[in-house]
Design a protein around this nucleic acid. Structure first.
Lengths: 248, 248
DNA sequence: GAAATATGTTGGTATATACCAGTGGACAAT
DNA sequence: ATTGTCCACTGGTATATACCAACATATTTC
């Protein structure tokens, strides 16, 4: 075997070096929240690499949660993470209001719907039961955070859709229908966002996000509301306070 | 302006069509769990596209949670998701054992460590306090699921590292040190896995995963264990049962 | 039979190029 | 002041090519 192979084993890939450089810029504070990051072509020229390599570096920033892109506008520095305490069982809207966060809620869709097998099981109703369904987009400072679709039993909350739904649902149901959230089941998973969701969240398709499914029950233990949320995964985290049950 | 532009507006990108076709194969059941997916070159030839396009389709399957890749071996069909109930406060190991899942635990690292600012705050000890730290890799059926690094106060659990740590920590601490987990704080977020983590999990770098941080307290409310887990995001989901506190 | 070697496959990285489709600003026409 | 057109810029998609490193499996050598 010839031993003249003198490859200097320069291990770290070039896109990684660029990624590190850009990350330093962000963590140093040279680039602040929502600041515009250099474009793919800009990075390519600045570091003397091809556009594909520049893109890989920028995409690495995205999966790291340090950057996000909005459509064809460009890439931006991610804001610090929001923490949503799921064990408090108050809606994100009510919590944000209490913390002085300027939360905007946009109605996307609202209307009647009938329960399919999954919804019927989760809400303990018959398949075909009439439900109210409504989808809302939640934003902070003009930036989309998550989309929520909620399903409630129509017979229990007549004329719900005639209220202004751009507020906390739990608040609405407690004020007008005397129904209080008492217990809930939450499921969190990571998944790719659909094309529609991506559009609403201002993301490109095939981005990973966090899905949060919620079943909310009243004091009698009867489920009355199902909520499906899809969050931009880079800019949220979910905390819960748990406790071992006295009995087992 | 010339009006002879007759581009037929064939909207769906080619990689999306390939993605859809492959997804159908999986959801139909033609491809079962852990089955080998066609390679990038294979897909490229079969559908008459370039390798980069084939790769995009396969990567879309990954962010959708339908496929995973292990190093340079190839891509495989993801198994159905595991559900981990974080509000039960029993370790995943104990829960898996109870459910008859063949969980394998590999020791990665174990040794003494001193508390940095973050650990000291979370464990309510002084900075520099002696801790036991150990890292374990959890597998099911030979497939890596998550990595956990735990930190416990050394003074409280002398000689802990001399036990076989390839079992449930909560069980170990309750049997040998009479310490019971009572309450806990859990935080879940999505983030990119590091190079080391990727290697242990058999993933490529810059894959997104789910991080789970846990603070476990005893019946007196004193924290005694910190756990950091990083999960392969496509194959797990986390559920919690929450309850509105009587007082507010 | 066991150990070393070769071969082919797979993803990983990288370049160079091309055209398309939204976005937003500059600027002209109204 | 408003409207509209144009253009530069952005990411999105796609092709073609090249070499490397890890891996699996034969094949050869001992």
């Amino acid at each position: 075997m010839p031993d003249d192979s003198a490859t200097p084993t320069e291990d770290p890939p070039r896109f990684r070096l660029i990624f590190d450089a850009l990350r330093r810029e962000i963590t140093n504070g040279n680039l602040v929240e929502h600041a515009v990051l250099p474009s793919e072509r800009g990075v390519a020229e600045e570091y003397g690499v091809s556009r594909m390599t520049a893109r890989r570096a920028l995409e690495a920033l995205e999966t790291e949660g340090l950057a996000y892109r909005e459509g064809r506008k460009g890439r931006f520095v991610s804001p610090r993470r929001l923490t949503y305490d799921i064990s408090q069982m108050v809606s994100f809207a009510a919590d944000a209001k209490a913390r002085g966060i300027n939360l905007q809620i946009e109605m996307i869709d609202a209307g009647p719907q009938t329960a399919d097998a999954k919804l019927a099981r989760e809400l303990s109703v018959q398949i075909g039961e009439h439900l109210h369904a409504f989808t809302r987009l939640f934003k902070i400072g003009g930036h989309a955070i998550f989309i929520e679709t909620e399903f409630v039993i129509a017979a229990r909350f007549p004329d719900l859709l005639r209220y202004d739904l751009r507020q906390s649902t739990t608040l609405l149901l407690s004020q007008h229908y005397n129904t209080l959230a008492h217990t809930g089941d939450v499921t969190i998973r990571m998944r790719g966002v659909s094309a529609i969701e991506a559009k609403l969240l201002g993301l490109s398709a095939n981005t990973a996000g966090i899905e949060l499914e919620q079943v909310i029950r009243d004091t009698a233990g009867a489920p009355f509301c199902i909520g499906h949320q899809i969050w931009r995964g880079e800019l949220a985290e979910f905390s819960a306070r748990t406790m071992v049950k006295p009995e087992s």
